[in-house]
Structure formats: C-alpha cells, structure tokens
Simulated assay, not measured.
Amino acid sequence: MPDQDTAEFRPAPERTSPTPWITLAALVCAMAAGAAWWFWLRPVAPAAAPAPVAAAPEALVAPPPAPEASGPQNLIDALAPPDAALPALAESDKRVTELLAELLGRDQLTMFVLTDGFVRRVVATVDNLGRAHAPSRMWPVQPTPQRFVVDGTGDAPTTVAAANAARYSAFLAFAEAVPMEPAVALYARLYPLFQQAYEELGYPKRYFNDRLVAVLDQLLLAPEPRGPLQVKLTPVNTEVPNLRPWVRYEYADPALEALPSGQKILLRMGPANEARAKALIRELRKRVATGELHLPPR
C-alpha cells in the first residue's frame, strides 16, 4: 500500500454524551471479525433499530480505553511465529493479498474483501467497533447488498423489516467457511504489521491483540432482541430534500442508540444472525485470548 497519512484511520474523538482478524472482518464487519472483525458488515444505514431487549447493564456503556501496559496480556507468539521477512506496512498489500487468496480463494476474496490497505483497515475497524462510530470508509469488507428497509413510511417511528436479515446471509456463510486454525496462524505470522498499524493510530504503548480480545468481549455482551426493533429518522433541519432517507435511521430506544457501534451492527443483523455471529466470535476469542480463559456470559 502506498504510504499515506494515517490520520484517516485514527478514531474520531469519543463523545462524552449519551478472525481470526479475517473472520472478525467478515463478521465485522459481517462485523467482522473478523475481521473481523466483527464486525463486520458495512451498514448501508447509519444505525438500525430498537424494542424490548435483554441486555446486561455493562453492555450499554463502552468501556474506557485500556491503560498503557508494560507488556501484552494476550501473547501472540504462542499461536505461530511471525514471518521472518515481512514487507514494510506501506508496501504490504501485495503480500497480504496473496496470503488471503491462498486461505480464502481468490473468488471469495474479491467478492467480500477490500484488500487495499487491508491491515490498516482491519486495525481501524476493530478499534472503532468498541467506540461510538465505525466509519464505513475504513471497513475491510465490501458493502452489504440492497438498502436498509423498514416496515413503515414517513417520519413516525417504525420497525426494521424482517427482510433485512437476508442481506447478511452471504457474509455469514463466508465467515463460517473461513478455516479458523489456519486463519489464526496467518494472523500471528502477520501480526507485526497489525501491531505497527495499531501504534500508528496513536497507541505506541498498547497491543493490538489485547484490543482485539477486548472488542470481542464487548461484542459478546450485545443485547439480544426479543421482538422487532424500532427505529426513527434522525431529524434534519434543512429544506433540501433528502434523496437517501434510509441512511438516516437510528434506534428509537436511547439505550440502544448509545451502544458501541459493534453491538449496534450485531443488533441490525437480526436475532438468528446475531447468534451465528456470536458463535464465530466465541471461537475466535478462544484462540486469540491467550492470557486467560474467562468468557463473557452467554
């Protein structure tokens, strides 16, 4: 990847108010995952919908940034040794694309993944999934097909259409087909590139794999809806007609709208898809969380 101003990938300031990496990206970004992140699917609408949900109180508030650590809590060396001769991060796209094509198949790679700046995209997206906003321009995956649809019309609150869940089916199938063990091993081999990209974001004394584990934990705490999620259009004070109203929806429930971006993406996917995504996230976490074995409650 040609050298570029990494400020584009830095997280936006936090608001004070109210897969292996490729699996997370495919979830994340889905979520992604992986990569991802998850986080995983690039949303067409900025947010998607709310109604009755069962949520742990801690799921409603993003955790504070991790303090500077004296060393990584989740060591990556136990997974696989890093490649001895990695290219420079700014020139890594070709090599990373070749390795991803070997792992996933070139057709699948082209269909689902954005390889330009892949390492930086994954790192920025994983970090942002635990924050209020995860800008879609940084995501490492292709956008989901079709547009976000609701059951009603006009400015009155309505519910997310059940048909939206189908938009994520192909991505979930892709993420579930990623061979977990080889993917995690490839992540470990390329890890110095991910760590460098994370340091470039402004975290010179923190560790990307620790951030990945923390975000996976947060995703597992996402609420699980018991019924259709209600959404409303974000008010716009302008006389200019909005030709793309489907990108203005947000959760009607303030508690859901205040969730971290990764949890809101999981909710938007629908209950069945969220369950499938969380199963993948748990499997990924078992492999990359080498520091301890505790898992968030189901």
Rank of each mutant, 00 (worst) to 15 (best):
D3E: 12
D3P: 03
P13G: 04
P18R: 04
I22L: 04
L24Q: 04
L27W: 02
L27H: 01
V28Q: 04
A32C: 12
A36R: 07
L41V: 07
P43D: 11
P43R: 00
V44I: 08
P46Y: 01
A47P: 01
A48N: 03
P50H: 15
A51K: 08
A55T: 11
P57D: 11
A62T: 03
P63W: 07
Q73D: 02
Q73R: 11
L75M: 06
A78M: 14
L79T: 11
A80G: 03
A85C: 05
S92K: 08
D93M: 00
L100H: 05
A101D: 13
L103T: 09
G105E: 09
Q108L: 13
R120Q: 07
V122C: 12
V122K: 00
V123Y: 01
V123L: 07
Q142K: 15
T144Y: 03
F148A: 01
G152E: 13
D155E: 14
D155A: 14
A156S: 13
A161C: 14
F171M: 12
A177T: 13
V178R: 06
P179Q: 03
P182F: 07
A185E: 14
A185T: 14
L190N: 06
L193S: 07
A197N: 15
R206D: 04
N209L: 03
L212P: 00
V213S: 08
Q218Y: 08
L219M: 14
K232Q: 15
P235I: 06
N237P: 04
E239D: 15
V240R: 12
V247D: 13
D253C: 05
L259N: 08
G262M: 06
G270C: 04
R276V: 00
L280P: 00
L284C: 15
K286P: 02
R287V: 11
R287L: 13
E292N: 13
L293A: 12
H294W: 09
H294Q: 14
